Computed example of a mutant assay.
Amino acid sequence: MRHWAASCPDRRGGQPTVGVEEEFVLLDARTGVAVPAAPRVLGALGGEPGVVPEFLRFQVETMTGVCRSLAEVRADLARLRERLGDAADEAGCLAVATAVAPFGAVPLVTADARYERLAARFPALVERTGTCACHVHVGIPFRAAGIRALAGLRPWLGVLLALSANSPYVDGLDSGWASARYPLWSRWPTARPPAAWRDVAEYDAAIGEAIRSGAAPDARGVYFYARLSPRHPTVEVRIADVCLDVGDAVVLAGLVRALVVTALGEDAPPRRTPDSVVLRSLRTAARHGLAGPGLDVTTGSTAPAEKLVEDLLAYVRPALRAAGDLDEVRRGCRELETLGGGAGRQRVLRAAAATPARFAARLAAATRGTDDGQNVEAAQ
């Protein structure tokens, strides 16, 4: 396994390291339907260590290196998307950053012993799995710091989901959700917010109970929306949809790192937000994204999504400023709000595309950062 994704905190006293995993679907260029082309795509990549198989054969995952700046994150994400796009072209399909395959898929499990055991344990979940996320890792000095960071992240998970929501289409239809991935993924028995654990012992007890009860096969299969990575000294935030645009993923990485830094720098423990309120905020964010109301977890009342984003920016502003990320992240948030996030952009692209093939082409072009899908369409 590649040494990747913030596998150690910054030992030089600077900002914590950060790394990003992105999951992509592979679509048939003629129909838009997901195709089990991952083995061909991975073969075309010739051993690129930053791209690996995922649970289903219509998915692949990219992993950045250990990054110390958002500029490094952006460069690595863009490079990996470009390499993946070229390999997909060679394999006769399209690599697309959307959190749910928009026109359906056959859920063929990747030939990997761990994935096959997971499918055998949860067969009813396999048909609607294969959703694609963006995972952000932030380096921590020790696990107890990670527990404090998880407590600080809990109230803001809904805002992070709203900013990243990028899966409005399921089986060719508008689902009515900005993130249709969220209700699909939440069917897994351990897919839930991190609890307000008091210490590492409580966290480890929760992981152990999930495994003993059969809710997860191992620690890697405990799918908390944010967790301590079971393989690296990082906090791993898993709530976000894969982002349509590289810039959106960079904004997400900057915000997550700033939230971790802010939580670790506070004198008082983070406020305790009831699980029911956190879950309501997540469901509201998944339904509306940036296009409708969200839930203010401090009051329990609905509030415009723009206000909640402003509240988040205000909360982490000192951390963003210290990292030199404030202007970039603030500008990125404004762009997301203007376009309605990934879900809003997908709806605009779908309205302008006469066929599923053209929509898939435009999604693939957006994934690679080109202006539109015209060149991809012309190559079909």
Rank of each mutant, 00 (worst) to 15 (best):
G289H: 00
D76N: 08
A253G: 04
Y225E: 14
A351D: 13
G247D: 14
G92S: 05
A268L: 10
D86L: 11
I140C: 12
L326T: 04
V136H: 14
L56K: 06
W4S: 15
D204C: 09
Y203V: 02
M63C: 08
D174M: 03
A219D: 05
N375A: 10
A37P: 03
R181T: 08
F359Y: 15
G172C: 06
P233N: 11
L70N: 05
R154C: 00
L255W: 02
R368E: 12
D10G: 12
F103V: 01
V309T: 09
G341H: 05
L45I: 00
D311V: 01
R181F: 06
E337M: 14
A151K: 11
R345K: 12
A379G: 04
P189R: 13
R334Q: 11
P16D: 10
R2F: 09
P107F: 13
L228P: 07
R271E: 07
M1V: 05
L70A: 08
A119G: 09
R83L: 12
Y182M: 12
Q59I: 02
E209L: 07
L349A: 15
L363Y: 05
F55C: 07
L255P: 01
G130M: 04
G139P: 05
V60C: 09
G324L: 07
S276L: 08
G92E: 11
E127M: 10
R154S: 05
G92W: 01
G289R: 01
M63I: 01
E337S: 14
L349W: 08
V33G: 05
L259R: 04
A286R: 02
G65N: 00
G13E: 09
G294M: 08
D174I: 01
L255Y: 02
P293M: 08
E48P: 00
S167Y: 03
V200D: 13
P318Q: 14
G324I: 04
D311N: 09
P16Q: 11
S229E: 12
R121N: 13
S276G: 14
Q15A: 15
P318E: 14
A352R: 11
P36M: 11
R350T: 08
V60K: 06
T298E: 06
V136G: 13
A364W: 07
